[in-house]
Design a protein around this nucleic acid. Structure first.
Length: 441
RNA sequence: GCCCCGGUAGUGUAGUGGCCUAUCAUGGAGCCCUGUCGAGGCUCCGACGCGGAUUCAAAUUCCGCCCGGGGCGCCA
């Protein structure tokens, strides 16, 4: 039991002179002891309150006690609120009582307000301390607003949120990138995408659905844009004519989300990424063939699918030419989408698919398009992709009883956050990232 | 999976065979200071990833292992 009633606690942002007595609680960020006066900066999730301790008023012993609290200890302070123009927040607290709720050990494995930077690895090993930094927790505020606005937009557009299993018997794109696990003695996998299930729901009359859920990839991809567990927004809609219908929804969705984000915390985002701006409206569509030409002009010859360098060059071209960050790449050749067996090819030109990517400054963040809803063609494409239809029985069955034409897309939430904030590493926008080497914390 | 690079105090670094009893900053401990907010001044503390090899001598060279960083392929 503490002597100070924690239920009376106010956040730093709520401190005003209106209530002359107050209780604050948080972490001791820093102490400035000037001898006869000391300033203790107490941080909570809304900001910092300065506690001003006077030796004369508190007495030598209490003053020594309050000024010797180890940084990052959790404390609660009760005191008098005073307006003071010399303080950043405009208010300070003159303590009458305080209590260390739990002391921090010294030295800290990671400084929260130190003047030296720490490596990402060190920071992730001590993530709980890393997350106490405002500029780090800000990344997750951005992330929360993004997912909140995605839901707001899609709910409003008549989409229902669903959940599909993450323990599955087969993957959407073959077995090499699946994590295996033992499921009551049977082999099972962690879902690499909700593709098969969201299509199944199209055969179930849901019409418009979305899911925001983890996807697991056992790809041995050790890069700044890959993680083994990421959050995917999956959207699927049925009774649609073409990929245009799907791109329209995605276009409106992304513009809505980024516009709202700009409204709510645009300035804070630009402190971290000065180039952030919300797209104005309809996004540009560049066909694969056009992209190839634009790349040739820029001196990058392309054979086959866009490689990482091609994506980056194209991103720069879009920036230079149109001053645009976000754009579609459409009409991928079918030969590049063999592995994506469920992609529907253009009826009068089977060399092309209606598949598209959406790139954000040269980084792929979305991929999607019309799915193949006709059973026979699907089987054929599955075989071309070297997959065994027998392993997909539950999925294929849904195509035999009135599967409507449908399509959708998958968007990598972390990739979007990473590009909005221009973060150097995707791990920055995951609380506890999982990669080839990191399984804890 | 392939290619390149690195591991020095709690944290970030300097140091490429002897000048190393290892630099600087930050941090920690302590002292001084009644308006700090990257506070300031002074003192002290604290480190060469592990194993082997070469050498009179290894933080420094070589080999193996472990850990980390970057790029590619692939993808969201």
């Amino acid at each position: 039991m503490t002597g100070i009633d924690l239920s009376k606690r106010k956040f730093s942002s709520e401190i005003t002179e209106a209530e002359p007595e107050g209780v604050i609680a948080g972490w001791v960020q820093d102490t400035r002891n000037l001898g006869g006066i000391a300033f203790i900066h107490v941080r909570d999730r809304t900001g910092i309150t300065q506690v001003t301790a006077l030796k004369k008023k508190l007495g030598d012993d209490v003053f020594a006690e309050i000024t010797s609290i180890v940084r990052e200890s959790a404390i609660v302070v009760m005191g008098e609120i005073k307006a003071n123009a010399q303080v950043k927040s405009g208010f300070e607290m003159l303590p009458t009582e305080f209590e260390v709720l739990n002391k921090a050990n010294a030295p800290l494995p990671l400084g929260v307000v130190d003047k030296v930077d720490a490596d990402l690895d060190t920071r992730l090993n001590n993530r709980f301390l890393d997350l106490r930094k405002e500029e780090i927790s800000r990344i997750f505020r951005v992330r929360r607003i993004i997912t909140k606005e995605i839901r707001a937009f899609l709910d409003n557009a008549g989409f229902d949120e669903v959940n599909t299993p993450k323990i599955v018997a087969a993957g959407a794109e073959g077995g090499s990138t699946l994590f295996t696990l033992d499921y009551f003695g049977k082999p099972a996998y962690l879902a690499q995408s909700s593709q098969l299930y969201k299509q199944t729901l199209m055969a179930s009359g849901f019409d418009r659905i979305y899911e925001i859920a983890p996807a697991f990839r056992a790809e041995e991809s050790d890069t700044v844009r890959h993680i083994a567990e990421f959050i995917s927004l999956d959207v699927e809609m049925s009774f649609v004519n073409s990929s245009e219908d799907i791109m329209n929804i995605l276009d409106s969705l992304i513009c809505h989300v980024l516009t709202k984000l700009d409204e709510v915390m645009g300035d804070e985002i630009r402190e971290l990424n000065p180039d952030f701006k919300a797209p104005k409206g309809e996004l540009r569509k560049v066909s694969y063939a056009e992209a190839k030409e634009m790349l040739a002009e820029a001196g990058k010859k392309l054979e086959g699918d866009l490689d990482t360098e091609a994506e980056k060059v194209l991103g720069q071209v879009m920036k230079d030419k149109f001053d645009e960050d976000l754009y579609f790449i459409t009409d991928f050749p079918s030969e590049l989408k063999i592995g994506t067996f469920y992609a529907r090819r253009v009826d009068d030109n089977p060399d092309l698919t209606g598949y598209f990517d959406m790139d954000y400054r040269g980084q792929e963040i979305v991929s999607g398009g019309m799915r193949e809803h006709r059973y026979d063609i699907l089987i054929k494409q599955m075989k071309e992709a070297d997959l065994d239809p027998d392993a997909f029985e539950f999925y294929l069955k849904t195509f035999m009883y009135g599967m409507p034409p449908h399509g959708g897309f998958g968007l990598g939430i972390e990739r979007l956050v990473q590009m909005v904030l221009a973060l150097p590493n995707i791990r920055e926008c995951v609380l506890f990232p999982r990669d080839m080497y990191r399984l804890e914390p």
